[in-house]
Amino acid sequence: WVPTKREEKYGVAFYNYDARGADELSLQIGDTVHILETYEGWYRGYTLRKKSKKGIFPASYIHLKE
């Protein structure tokens, strides 16, 4: 896992994603996520609506905010 280059990196989910394991994070369309790390097509972070739950999710489900 590699920390993100920018201190504040955010994105928005444009697909729903159902977590398949305890380390994964479920997403709903429109969720804003804070991205902490990246690795081979995956991000690690949390949604702003539930900051206490961190997990991994596919990068392809996220539109990055500039």
Rank of each mutant, 00 (worst) to 15 (best):
W1L: 08
V2S: 08
V2F: 09
V2W: 08
V2G: 08
P3I: 04
P3K: 06
P3R: 02
P3A: 05
P3Y: 03
T4M: 09
T4Y: 07
T4R: 07
T4S: 14
K5A: 12
K5G: 13
R6C: 15
R6P: 14
E7Y: 13
E7F: 13
E7D: 12
E7K: 11
E7T: 12
E7M: 11
E7V: 11
E8M: 13
E8A: 12
K9D: 04
K9L: 13
K9S: 14
Y10G: 02
Y10C: 14
Y10V: 08
Y10R: 05
Y10F: 11
Y10H: 10
G11P: 00
G11Q: 04
G11S: 02
V12K: 06
A13F: 04
A13C: 12
A13V: 12
A13R: 03
A13D: 02
F14T: 13
F14H: 13
Y15D: 14
Y15I: 15
Y15R: 15
Y15N: 14
N16C: 12
D18W: 08
R20A: 09
G21C: 13
G21M: 08
G21Q: 09
A22F: 09
A22R: 08
D23A: 08
E24I: 04
E24P: 03
E24D: 05
L25S: 01
L25P: 00
L25K: 00
S26M: 03
L27H: 00
L27V: 02
L27S: 02
L27W: 02
Q28F: 09
Q28L: 10
I29H: 04
I29L: 06
G30F: 03
G30H: 03
D31T: 04
D31N: 03
D31I: 06
D31L: 05
T32V: 15
T32S: 07
V33P: 00
V33I: 03
H34M: 14
H34N: 03
H34E: 05
H34R: 15
I35A: 00
I35T: 00
I35D: 00
L36S: 05
L36G: 01
E37L: 07
E37W: 05
E37A: 10
T38V: 13
Y39D: 03
Y39L: 12
Y39M: 13
Y39Q: 09
E40K: 12
G41A: 06
G41L: 06
G41I: 05
W42D: 00
W42H: 01
Y43S: 00
Y43V: 02
R44K: 10
Y46W: 06
Y46M: 04
T47D: 06
L48T: 10
L48M: 12
R49S: 13
R49I: 09
R49Q: 11
K50L: 13
K50I: 09
K50M: 13
K50S: 12
S52G: 12
S52T: 11
K53G: 06
K54G: 06
K54E: 10
K54N: 07
K54M: 14
G55K: 03
G55V: 02
G55F: 02
F57Q: 02
F57G: 01
F57W: 03
F57M: 02
F57C: 04
F57I: 01
P58K: 02
A59D: 03
A59T: 06
A59N: 03
S60G: 08
Y61N: 07
I62V: 08
I62F: 01
I62G: 01
H63V: 13
H63A: 10
H63W: 12
H63R: 14
L64Q: 03
L64H: 03
K65M: 15
K65C: 15
